[in-house]
Computed example of a mutant assay.
Amino acid sequence: MLTKQPITKKLNAPAEKAWEAISRIGRLDIWFPIIATCSVEGDGVGACRRMTTSDGGEITDIIQEIDHATRRLAYLRVKSPFPVTCYQGTVEVFDSFDSLAVIVWTIEFESDPKDSASVAELVKEAISAGLDGMERDLQSDFALSKK
């Protein structure tokens, strides 16, 4: 069963700064409480992002798109501890009317119908917590850069 789960959040950080952080691919271990480690092999499209979860699960993403003009990043999760057969993520950064970042993080995944609701809820909670962590990280970086 194909499920699409969008998560949207306005950050108290400039859109350009948010895109700069997202386009660097890493720091998920700083932003996401569920992620214990994050390393990146390569650069740009084709880069491999490897993570471990706090309970020892392994995650591997392949970066499929980094579009600086539209501020859009897409990745394919090729290894996951979650009950999915396909997992595609897209992160987009938009400018709000006050130049702050609006992040739209959309996950599309395939799973057994009995698992789809629980996976969608897990994704929503994890990404929401990650966006909160990103906001804290960007605010600290932004505050330091303004001194």
Rank of each mutant, 00 (worst) to 15 (best):
G89W: 03
T37A: 05
A36M: 09
A69I: 05
T106M: 07
Y75W: 07
V91L: 11
C38N: 12
V84Q: 11
F97K: 14
D95Y: 08
A15K: 01
F32D: 00
P83D: 02
P81D: 10
H68T: 14
I59T: 10
L28V: 05
D95S: 11
E58F: 08
V104D: 13
G89V: 06
Y87K: 07
V91F: 08
T90F: 01
F97N: 14
Q88G: 12
T90Y: 02
V78E: 14
D55A: 06
G56A: 08
A36V: 01
R77L: 12
V45T: 03
E41H: 08
I66E: 06
I103Y: 00
P83W: 00
S80P: 12
E108K: 05
E16R: 11
S99M: 12
K17V: 08
V91N: 04
T60A: 13
S99C: 12
C38Y: 03
F82H: 09
A18M: 00
Q88K: 12
H68A: 13
L28P: 00
I103S: 02
S39T: 13
G57D: 09
L11H: 01
E20Q: 14
D98S: 15
R77H: 02
I30R: 14
R71D: 07
I35D: 00
T70P: 06
Q64H: 07
I34R: 06
C48S: 15
T90K: 07
L73A: 06
E16M: 05
G56Y: 09
E16D: 11
S80C: 15
G42T: 01
F94G: 15
